[in-house]
Amino acid sequence: MAYSGIGGQAVIEGVMMKNAESYAVAVRKPDHEIIVEKKEYGGICKNERVRNLIFVRGIINFVESMILGMSCLTFSASFFEDEEEKEHERNQKKEKAEMGITICFSLVLAVAIFMVFPFYMSLLFQRFVNSETVVILIEGILRLLIFLAYILLISRMEDIKRVFMYHGAEHKCINCIEHGMELTVENVKKSSREHKRCGTSFLFVVVIITIIATMFIRVDSRILRLALRLAIVPLVAGISYEFIRLAGRSENPLVNALSRPGLWMQKLTTKEPDEEMIEVGIASVEAVFDWKEFVKSIREKENDDI
């Protein structure tokens, strides 16, 4: 499998694809027309040296993905709002402020649910368990169970099911071209809906690395223990990004084996798309990526290797 460098995200009735600084959002409107918006996104950090620092680039990428993802979701949702809501959203300054508040609230909520809550729940077990290692392990298991429960819960929502179908379309389009096939509906349908560079895999790796990292945080003060857990979040995100980045470029058997649990998780966050969804994914790819040239280069390399 060749590395294309493109990545994406499912949005409401659509797909966003990003290649370098260019990104495109393709949305299937209520009248079934596909509309594509292509833009440039330079990111939050313009310094290339800083952007490419190992571990630091993962943190930057995570924040940028949240900002861009929220913007694309807002854009796709605008086609399914009534006239009053559309009028309300026309104030760009207000929209940006609301987006910033939403992102901050999402981060605070995520930290509270996945970091703070499991920590305090695990403290209840200290009454029955003398081993600090076991208590920390219980905390990690609780964190993993909350993550799994969250995905299972949202996967039952009808609107989310459609988003997960578009998520599948996004993956299948990328897999199609990275396996050297022409980007057609039929070829995309035959492609896998799991991909090693998926955000689901990233979040799963974050949970696992957090469990490992907290094993080394051993101080008496509960407040300090919690503070240190929160302090390592950026480092954990950076390490997780490096693994996902490596996995997307490597076919090493060990890397593939370590990637497998994340791929299993994607069976929950991706669903098989229909042909109309695949067409949206293809439109998004074609707006930012010359897949014909890419597939041609793969075939030429294969011929040279023969």
Rank of each mutant, 00 (worst) to 15 (best):
M70F: 14
L68D: 00
E83V: 08
V63R: 04
E89V: 11
E64A: 05
L68T: 01
M70Q: 14
L73W: 03
E87F: 07
V63M: 05
K86D: 10
L73G: 04
S71K: 13
M66N: 10
L68H: 00
F62W: 13
F62A: 08
F79C: 09
M66T: 09
H88N: 15
S76D: 03
E64M: 06
E89Q: 15
I60M: 01
R57F: 01
I60K: 00
F75H: 09
E85F: 06
F79K: 11
F62E: 05
I60V: 00
M70K: 15
S71Q: 11
D82V: 02
D82N: 08
K86N: 12
S78P: 07
M66L: 15
E81I: 12
G69T: 00
M70G: 15
E81G: 10
S76P: 02
V56L: 04
M66I: 12
E83W: 04
A77P: 07
F80W: 15
N61M: 07
I60W: 01
G58C: 02
N61F: 09
I59G: 04
S65L: 11
E87P: 07
E83F: 05
F75N: 04
S65W: 06
E84K: 15
L73I: 06
I59M: 02
M66E: 05
S78M: 07
H88F: 15
M66Y: 09
I67P: 09
S65T: 12
V56A: 03
E81Y: 14
M70R: 15
I67K: 13
K86Q: 15
I59N: 01
E84L: 12
S71R: 14
N61T: 12
E64T: 08
F80L: 12
N61A: 13
E87M: 10
G69P: 02
D82T: 04
S78T: 07
M66F: 13
S71M: 11
E87D: 12
N61R: 09
F80G: 14
M66K: 10
H88I: 13
G69F: 01
L73K: 03
E64P: 07
F75A: 06
L68C: 01
F62D: 05
C72L: 00
S65F: 09
M70V: 14
F79M: 11
M70I: 14
K86S: 13
V56E: 01
I67G: 10
F80S: 12
I67R: 14
D82L: 00
I60C: 02
E85T: 09
S71P: 05
E81H: 13
E83Q: 10
F75D: 04
I67N: 13
E85A: 12
S76F: 02
V63D: 05
C72Y: 03
D82K: 04
I67S: 12
E87G: 10
K86E: 14
E83A: 10
M70D: 12
E87R: 10
L68Y: 02
F75Y: 15
M66D: 07
C72F: 03
L68P: 03
A77E: 11
S65P: 05
T74K: 05
R57L: 02
F79T: 11
K86M: 14
E89W: 10
F62Q: 05
K86G: 10
F79L: 11
I60H: 00
R57N: 02
E81V: 14
M66P: 07
E83R: 06
